[in-house]
């Protein structure tokens, strides 16, 4: 029955290798929720744009306001920021919960490494988007955010659950496709940040979270 001991040894090696190099407390549930927030944001954004595009209704209503482009931009920007903040907070809270359940540190070498490697492409993309706005390439902002978010996921996947890599590939792909359909940025956003998050979040949830409970 010595082979049992060897089997244990192998699983200990695997366990230590993944625990020391990957942050595995990422919750699939946070992916699902992030996707849902994005879709809610998308619906709200759509309704705001509708109001903006149909000025007649606004005129007929008793409201004496004139919605202009700047105001709409601010509203859309606010929606985006709220979605991002809520998704981030949810992600952090659920990761803390999962880390506690499996008795791991939330802020250790592996989570720091994950954060740094995720943020490098993401911050680069964010700054690049500001440059695009300065040059008035508004239509390219949505594709570029998707592409850089995808690159961030691919880069970060080396330091966490491997499935994040496929979320990254998917976002890069639709980001590139979106460059050819610049008027439909919001729809691509909903697909990339909404539908894909829900899809991969569910996959990760079924694969890693359910098993453990």
């Amino acid at each position: 029955m010595k082979s049992n001991k060897y089997l244990d040894d192998i699983s200990e090696i695997k366990n230590m290798m993944s625990r020391s190099s990957r942050f595995i407390s990422l919750s699939g549930l946070s992916g699902i929720l992030a996707g849902i927030y994005s879709l809610i944001g998308f619906v709200i954004a759509q309704s705001r744009i509708k109001i903006y595009l149909e000025p007649k209704e606004v005129l007929e209503s008793t409201q004496p306001i004139a919605i202009n482009t700047a105001q709409l931009s601010i509203e859309l920007f606010t929606i985006a920021i709220v979605v991002i903040i809520m998704a981030t907070i949810t992600g952090i809270l659920l990761s803390i919960r999962k880390a506690k359940q499996s008795d791991e540190k939330i802020w250790d070498v592996s989570s720091k490494r994950l954060a740094v490697n995720f943020l490098i492409p993401l911050v680069t993309g964010g700054i690049f988007c500001i440059a695009l706005l300065q040059e008035n390439h508004v239509g390219l902002v949505a594709p570029v955010t998707l592409i850089f978010y995808g690159l961030a996921c691919v880069n970060a996947s080396k330091y966490t659950l491997g499935d994040v890599r496929y979320l990254g590939y998917a976002n890069i792909l639709i980001g590139l496709i979106a460059t050819q359909f610049t008027g439909y940025g919001l729809y691509f956003w909903a697909l990339g940040f909404g539908v894909f998050h829900i899809f991969y979040g569910t996959r990760m949830y079924l694969k890693f979270d359910i098993k453990k409970i």
């Binding site: 040894d9 200990e12 695997k14 230590m16 290798m17 190099s21 540190k105 250790d108």
Partner: peptide, 21 residues
Amino acid sequence: LGIMSILMVNDYADFNTLKEL
């Protein structure tokens, strides 16, 4: 076995990291 496994996949690890893991 644990120490070696950790060091195989990391360039280096300090004392406290090993201790925690």
